[in-house]
Write a protein that binds this DNA or RNA. Structure first.
Length: 672
DNA sequence: CAATATCTCCTTTTT
DNA sequence: GGAGATATTG
């Protein structure tokens, strides 16, 4: 396929820093892929000296695959295509000596982090969930903004932030003694390292000679800085982004980085991609009109040369059960009429919990579906159990992992025993695991308890030895067998069927681990510690969802839909307090929700439905729902509201003396 | 003291 | 409708 002039320019401009403003569906991925190929084939770069950073593992995976197809597997080998987090992990891994980190560090996911914070702040925060959560996000913000604990303390003005800064410091100390890192560390640590250590900086600047960054509007301060440090003086890079698709500011993303880049690099070349190849003109028009309500830094005029297309429909359901049924019925009808595939349909929603009823409706109608993101594979108890074991084997100082698995299956080690063990370990400033082997433990615990603990500890050590001896696959096999995990599942599950399901999940995990340990044509073999950290980044899960690509209706959150496209898209729950979400209305941050709606709309290629309810059950009470303000902002002549004359004429407007929008609101109220 | 049964809270988005 | 804390039993 030929590139249009803008795309062409973006691909061939390689002499300096380059910013590509790429509207939705304007072929930005194609630009990146072509550019990588161009750099290797025409500019003399070696694959191993080019890095491309994407926002999700899935996107990285896809890009790797597409690049490999376009330039041949051999040439593509060695390219660094990953997320920021995986790149950071790689840097940490290779520089762990300089950093003074032990090789087998644990990667804490946010649940681990939460558990640790809860533990550490019992006295100060009194187990208050909301407080702990805001502490967690404060810490995450600090880390994302490159603020270390000492600086946080210095900057703290009020009492609350002083307390939080102090707890941040305590958290950091404990993470260190657990030999653990959290997600934010994966960016923070490499950035600080590159900033302070010239030798390391030079090494990485030599290694990565050209850097490409996708979804640039989602970078936060530390990622911005990391990019800057990696590209150095040469500043050979291309970043691609779209401020209208910035939907992650709640976790520190700074779309202003798009502007900042212009001041930091005066020679920055700005290229706009404005032709949309994805959506019908009508869908694009709706999206453009909606997003025009937001402020803009760079003006952008997206256009499409595709057909004008079908009207956008708004389905109105009495309640949330009906909402799900309506969607499913419409898919069945539409598929029958249009002879389409289930895989052509996507259902998008604001929050993960909204998927439940949809799932149920799909199941009862025997429609195959795939639900991505959300309550993932990795939050299943059985997976967390086995991962807990693996983490402990790799890094015995990981107290979180220890606590998860020490009495699983039951080994007669109850809370009382653990309480004492914890107290003892705390006094001696050692990990729980080390405490087991301390001779003085006898003075604090009954012999039976000490013995159970000792047995457990020895078991972990033994497994670790098998793994390091070069037989990690064998070690995992033994592990699952020796803890009688299968029996445990059958005993604890409510039905044999459920146990079977869980065991299947375990086999799946086992398969992935084995694959990663052994490597394949695109990926090098990994060590067990690497596998464990990579799985925590949910790397494998997303890879898997691809080859499972049967003919299935796709369900996902609006956030998860970014970067994807589907011929037919349903957006459900497009109501006030859901699609602008209540909290964003309270915080007066509706613009970001509008961008979220914009992202959803621009996923659609051919047809688009919005679905709303008149009322919905929210924990016991039924509450009335109002259509989202975004629906009222759309061009009404492109919409068909169900059971209703679509458009108010100019005459009606004059007669009633009310605005278009007020009238629509009235109509909705009368009917419900 | 450990294992199981009941009751409560809360539900934005994710690397 | 699910996880986590509390009440009850073995």
């Amino acid at each position: 396929m030929k590139l249009n002039p803008g795309q062409n320019e973006a691909v061939h401009y390689v002499s300096g820093p380059c910013l590509v403003l790429a509207g939705a569906g304007s072929g930005k991925t194609r630009v990146i892929i072509n550019k990588i190929a161009y750099l290797v084939e025409k500019c003399g770069y070696k694959a191993r000296n080019i890095a491309a950073v994407t926002f999700t593992n899935k996107a990285a995976r896809e890009m790797k695959e597409r690049v490999a197809q376009s330039m041949g597997r051999k040439d593509a080998r060695g390219l660094w295509i990953s997320t920021f987090h995986t790149l950071g992990l790689e840097i940490i891994k290779r520089e762990h000596k300089v950093l003074g980190l032990k090789a087998g560090f644990s990667l804490f996911d946010d649940q681990d982090t939460f558990a640790l914070l809860k533990e550490l702040t019992e006295d100060e925060l009194d187990e208050d969930k909301d407080l702990i959560k805001s502490l967690a996000s404060a810490i995450s913000n600090w880390k994302g903004g490159l603020v270390i604990p000492q600086q946080a303390k210095n900057m703290a003005k009020d009492e609350q932030s002083q307390l939080f800064a102090m707890l941040y410091q305590r958290y950091a100390q404990h993470m260190k003694s657990y030999n653990a890192l959290d997600f934010d560390d994966l960016i923070l640590i490499p950035t600080l390292l590159l900033r302070m250590n010239e030798e390391v900086r030079t090494r990485w600047q030599t290694k990565i000679q050209y850097l490409l960054v996708d979804e640039y509007q989602d970078t936060n301060t530390s990622q911005y800085e990391l990019v800057k440090l990696l590209v150095g003086e040469r500043s050979r890079f291309t970043v691609v982004g779209d401020d209208d698709q910035s939907i992650y500011s709640w976790r520190g993303a700074k779309p202003q980085n798009l502007v900042l880049l212009g001041t930091d690099y005066p020679r920055l070349k700005l290229i706009k991609l404005e032709q949309n190849y994805r959506s019908s003109q009508r869908i694009l028009r709706a999206a453009n009109i909606l997003i025009a309500n937001n402020p803009h830094v760079y003006d952008k005029a997206l256009f499409s040369e595709l057909a004008y297309g079908e009207p956008i429909r708004i389905l109105i359901a009495a309640n949330e059960e009906q909402e799900a049924e309506r969607v499913v019925a419409e898919i069945i009808r539409h598929k029958f009429v249009g002879r389409t595939k289930f895989g052509d349909y996507a259902i998008l929603y604001r929050g993960n919990h909204q998927s439940r009823l949809l799932e149920r409706a799909l199941i009862t109608n025997r429609i195959p579906y795939k639900i991505s993101g959300g309550k993932s594979f990795f939050s299943r108890a059985e997976i967390k159990d086995i991962m807990g074991y693996l983490r402990l084997v790799v890094n015995p100082d990981d107290d979180n992992a220890f606590l998860r698995v020490v009495n699983l299956p039951k080994r007669g080690i109850g809370p009382a025993t653990l309480e004492r063990l914890g107290h003892f370990a705390n006094q001696k400033h050692i990990s729980l695991f080390e405490a087991i082997f301390d001779v003085e433990l006898n003075h604090h615990l009954a012999p039976a308890a000490v013995n159970s603990l000792y047995q457990f500890g020895t078991f972990i050590v033994d497994t670790g030895e098998v793994a390091t001896r070069g037989e990690p696959v064998e070690a995992i096999k033994q592990l699952i067998r020796k803890i009688n995990y299968e029996d445990y599942l059958y005993e604890t599950s409510t039905s044999a069927k459920a146990a079977e399901m869980r065991m299947k999940n375990i086999s799946e995990l086992y398969r992935w681990v084995t694959e990663m340990l052994e490597g394949d044509e695109l990926d090098e073999p990994m060590t067990l510690p690497e596998v464990v950290t990579r799985l925590t980044l949910r790397d494998m899960m997303e890879r898997n969802s691809e080859d499972e690509g049967g003919d299935q209706v796709q369900l996902m959150t609006l956030h998860a839909s970014k970067g994807l496209e589907y011929p037919f898209v349903f957006m459900v729950g497009v109501e006030e307090r859901i699609l602008p979400h209540q909290s964003s209305i309270d915080e007066e941050n509706v613009d970001e929700e509008r961008r979220l709606a914009y992202v959803g709309i621009t996923r659609a290629q051919r047809e688009l439905w919005f679905v709303i309810c008149r009322e919905r059950r929210q924990f016991g009470e039924t509450i009335r729902c109002e259509p989202s303000r975004f629906l009222l902002e759309l061009p009404q002549d492109d919409l068909i509201w169900e059971n209703r004359k679509p458009v108010q004429t100019e005459q009606q407007r004059v007669e009633t003396g009310k605005s278009h929008i007020a009238n629509l609101r009235d109509m909705f109220k009368k009917e419900s």
